[in-house]
Design a binder for these strands. Structure first.
Lengths: 133, 133
DNA sequence: ATATATAGGACTATCTTAGTCCAAATTCAA
DNA sequence: TTGAATTTGGACTAAGATAGTCCTATATAT
């Protein structure tokens, strides 16, 4: 089953919310309340987006988050890797594959799966957050 | 993290193996041995492919599996749904969504996510097993 | 009969994802 | 300078999905 994680869904909802409150700082609490998103989980997600420079944050009272880029400058792919780490559609395609994959010799489908991986990546790179807000 | 399941990988390897042994029946045991695939797990997978009329099977001694269609007549999408069941990239897009999804009101991204889902499906439908053998 | 197959239910183990809890650190403002 | 509101971030738990195993039944060629 191929799916985007709930965290990415939450991230999209959060980015839409932030994008809609043009340039005013919004807090994790606000987004959580309005969007019915578990607060603690959302906090982690926003932190990751901040660490990837998708958001900027202000700590302390009256703090909050705001966008650091235009939504059309944020590829969906960046969001996904920011939140879920590097994506590989098949186990054998991970960076450290050669060590771990005991099937290096017998795996007959590596090449075409790699091609598919590339096409999926391209699809996710071609979408930006502006497609979701 | 978006990924195809190990079962689908195994299925692709099995189909390649069967396709390569042109028209001779091949047994689950053979495929398992040659491909380093857990026998019991593989058996289940082959059964599912048979139930979807992707393979035909002969029980009993000298039995085994063979292809029921040309590889270019089997979309990757069919394989995936045969093995992993219906795919929806986001939880809220499942068939029984309206009942279960408590966010029907607050979910702000359903439409664009649905569009993305469609595009992914189209991609998987456009690929056939012939791309993997 | 018996060995070799598929068929399939039930179970377990392992991994991933989702979610929670707690304790800082930061900042504004009274 | 205290306190409330906020982000930061580590550690943990719960729930669910995936992968894998075990066992028994059924079919069939020889």
């Amino acid at each position: 089953m191929i799916r985007i994680s709930k965290k990415v869904e939450y991230a999209l909802m959060a980015l839409k919310f932030i994008s809609d409150s043009d340039h005013k700082l919004v807090t994790a609490r606000e987004i959580s309340d309005k969007g019915n998103i578990p607060y603690d989980l959302l906090s982690k997600i926003l932190q990751k987006l901040k660490n990837e420079n998708i958001l900027v944050s202000n700590q302390g009272m009256n703090g909050g988050y705001s966008l650091n880029k235009r939504t059309d400058e944020i590829p969906l792919f960046s969001l996904m890797t920011a939140i879920d780490g590097d994506t590989a559609i098949a186990e054998c395609l991970h960076d450290n594959n050669d060590k771990d994959c005991c099937m290096t010799d017998t795996c007959t489908i590596k090449l075409p799966v790699t091609r598919l991986q590339k096409e999926l990546e391209d699809l996710f790179k071609s979408k930006t957050i502006s497609d979701f807000v």
